[in-house]
Simulated assay, not measured.
Amino acid sequence: MTKNQDALAMRPGLEGRWADTLTALRGGPQLGNLGVTSRAHSAAAVATMLAEAGAATTAWYGVRVFTDHLGDAPVGENFDLVLDAEWEAGRRDPYRRVARLLHFVAWTAREGQ
């Protein structure tokens, strides 16, 4: 799992933090909640890194498509519906491409298996 480089402007944009939005769009450093600069990768970059390591990607998902802008606030009523909506959006384009996080599932074949 990694932050999605291609979607880092979504949270500040939805929160109306325009200077932070422009920084993200321009590829500037991103500070996390702990005040630490964190790394992010595009889906294509993650797939390439896994392939170079000999791992075959079997699936990838977007995480926090619709709820990332809430930060740590609870999603409120209808949690089951929110969860279902996040799951459905996180497994298909174009929604998973704007998710805050990317979750890749990959495997490597071991000798003799």
Rank of each mutant, 00 (worst) to 15 (best):
E88L: 11
L31G: 00
L102N: 01
E111S: 12
E52Y: 01
R110D: 03
G54M: 11
A55H: 13
G71L: 12
P12V: 08
L31S: 04
F66M: 09
M10D: 06
A9I: 02
G76L: 10
T48V: 08
L50D: 00
K3C: 06
Q5D: 05
Y61L: 14
D93S: 09
V82K: 01
P12I: 07
A51G: 01
R100I: 08
T23P: 00
Q5E: 07
S38L: 15
A44S: 10
W60F: 13
A40E: 03
R91T: 02
L8R: 14
Y95P: 00
E86M: 06
A55Y: 15
W60Q: 03
T23D: 02
D6G: 00
T21D: 01
N4K: 10
D93W: 07
T21H: 03
G16C: 12
M1H: 04
D20R: 02
E88P: 00
A99P: 04
G54Y: 10
R64I: 07
G90C: 10
A73G: 00
T108H: 13
A43P: 11
R92Q: 13
E15T: 09
A19K: 13
H69Y: 14
S38K: 12
A99I: 15
G28R: 05
A47F: 11
R96L: 15
L31E: 06
A89V: 11
A7Y: 09
G54H: 07
D68L: 06
T37N: 03
V75G: 02
R100S: 08
R97V: 06
M10V: 15
E111V: 15
T108F: 14
G27I: 14
A47C: 04
V98I: 15
A59F: 11
A44E: 15
L81W: 07
T108Q: 14
A24Q: 10
H69F: 14
L31Q: 06
P12F: 08
D72K: 09
M49Y: 14
A47Q: 11
P94M: 15
H41M: 14
L83K: 05
L14V: 09
S38N: 08
Q113C: 06
E86G: 01
A55M: 15
V105D: 01
A45W: 10
P74E: 02
A45G: 00
G28H: 04
R91L: 02
V65Y: 02
R26G: 02
L14M: 13
P12R: 04
M1D: 02
T2E: 08
V105R: 05
T67H: 03
R17H: 11
G112Y: 13
S42L: 12
